[in-house]
Amino acid sequence: MTDPLLVEGRAWVFGDEVNTDDMYPGFAMRLPVAEAARHMFDASRPDWPGLVEPGDIVVGGRNFGLGSSRPVALLFRELGVGALVAERFNTLFLRNCVNYGLPALTVPGIAGAVREGDRLRVDVRAGELTDLATGTTHAGTPLPDFLADIIQAGGLIPRLEASGHLRPTL
């Protein structure tokens, strides 16, 4: 089985302060996750959900994910996004990524350092990003091990099932 914390894919580059309401619009909260995912970035880049492919990597700037607690990570996962990388994540947003099993890595200065379409390799546990188009490696801030472990387990839900806190779905 492949390690979810080792991701290789094509980069989509977003800017600073991309907020949750853009990623997961209020009206989409009425919809099942699969449909809601079709409305990601409705306010800034509405064609993106039709362009992104499984395994792609989303790169953001400062304060990525400012805003609400809505579980945006579920929508990224629905579209098959392999990992998020940002210069700095909003901490609530980052918790949601970890808790829903979406690999996320903080890499200072990254939004200005990679180009859209570059092939990237992200090692979340080691805290390292390599731009395969340029051969450049960027040092990130590794997550504490206990958070990396949660991502590796697929998020909190499978763990709560395994520990007997949650009845498994059939």
């Binding site: 609400s68 949601n96 839900i157 709560l160």
Partner: peptide, 21 residues
């Protein structure tokens, strides 16, 4: 007090504990 997201709150409902930095 801070926003934690739904999965984490689900865990706290079960365990009564969480982490903070």
């Amino acid at each position: 007090a801070r926003g934690l997201g739904p999965a984490e709150v689900l865990q706290i409902v079960c365990t009564g504990r969480t982490w903070h930095q």
